[in-house]
Design a protein around this nucleic acid. Structure first.
Lengths: 211, 211
DNA sequence: GATATAATGTGAAAAACATCACATAAATCT
DNA sequence: AGATTTATGTGATGTTTTTCACATTATATC
């Protein structure tokens, strides 16, 4: 059991619950969550059961309580401070990503060699890579987003690992060499697009069959 | 059987094979691929078996042939033309994404209301959203990347769907209302980061236990 | 206060997925 | 040419994940 699927779903539940909360709903049900995100209600209850989340028979779940429990399980009771390595276009886009602003993650600083050359006012403080070690120590950061060019990705990873970072999102398109006690989530956009192509192809074929 | 895992793995195989090809290797083996991407060799052979890919007993696989077969199965024999909707920071970052340049996807145009205001020379032609319909018709595009602000994401999706696009990558942080015959791959960065946080937390706990 | 209803929670069954074990065939060696 | 080695290909097996079926209980209704 590696919980990968579970965690993904819990995160989806959390997102749905946040929407419900914003819309002013006080209570919800497995069926309601299901209709939001398309995961079967029975699956939702199984997940809740596994993580010890309990609702009220007939009453369903109290939105705020459930949300708090989900956040607790996911480890995001408080906002998680994250550093961004690389402040190019991707980095800038990430600091503006609305999902982060409303959500549980906060990019507290970015690091980029081109500090001086930043044209517009940056959305987060940007420092030179040299100041990474002291910054990390001072702020107790545990997570980093790697948004650097491929050729420096490994080097930057190693540096961050050496200074205690263990959780990573990696946007570079080369695979990293990762010690066992670190966790790297690779966001591989080409792979994502390829699955889209595959499925679109498949449904085309089906349509042709039906005709 | 929805092939989701299979497609993901095939795409990983393809990426590994491309690296091998670039490094000038002519032949490879299930074990070699395995050591590249950490998927068990037996799993690789099972996948190949399922999709009718055959190697040579004792000889392994011919890199170029295998690569061609994988691309065929994934539907990326030729470069897939894709349009990019939204040419903000994220959009710009995507046009520069090295994975696309070397890979099977090609962003052939971007669409953004702020066409005139583009400062630096863009990496792809950028047109106003109004020209989407004619452009799509003229170029036979089937796939789009949605990199627009949340509040226009659904509207843009609908427009693209109406003009025949069926495969999407969606970067906006709101869930889209999607007809059954379209396929949307949501790239939810907050979710990705939350899984990282979860696993980093977990391994922290384990370390504490061991102490 | 008894009955009906609408939800949860979970053991059991089914389905999907991954691994194993080994038969098979091609290449190499003697 | 025959024996040996090395890697594939796949049926059988084991494991994980999802779905089902239904017992349970809180709320609402009469």
């Amino acid at each position: 059991m590696n919980f990968k699927n579970h965690v993904t779903r819990l995160s989806q539940y959390k997102a749905a619950l946040e929407r419900m909360d914003n819309e002013g709903n006080e209570k919800t049900h497995a069926e309601t969550i299901s209709s939001f995100i398309g995961i079967p209600a029975t699956q939702i209850r199984k997940d809740f059961s596994l993580f010890g989340i309990r609702g009220n028979k007939r009453g369903g779940y109290v939105v705020k309580d459930l949300l708090a429990e989900l956040k607790g399980i996911l480890g995001i009771d408080e906002k998680i401070p994250v550093v961004l390595i690389g402040y190019g276009h991707l980095g800038k886009a990430l600091t503006r990503y609305p999902g982060f602003h409303k959500g549980s993650i906060r990019i507290i600083a970015a690091f980029d060699p081109a500090v001086g050359a930043l044209s517009n006012q940056p959305t987060v403080p940007v420092f030179p890579p040299a100041s990474i070690p002291t910054f990390l120590k001072k702020n107790g950061v545990k997570h980093a987003i790697l948004a650097v060019p491929d050729d420096v990705a490994q080097e930057m990873f190693d540096k961050l690992y050496m200074h205690g970072i263990r959780g990573f999102i990696n946007f570079s398109s080369i695979p990293l060499n990762v010690p066992a006690d670190a966790y790297v989530n690779n966001v591989d956009l080409e792979l994502e697009l390829e699955t889209v192509v595959f499925y679109t192809r498949e449904s085309e074929k089906n349509e042709q069959k039906e005709t």
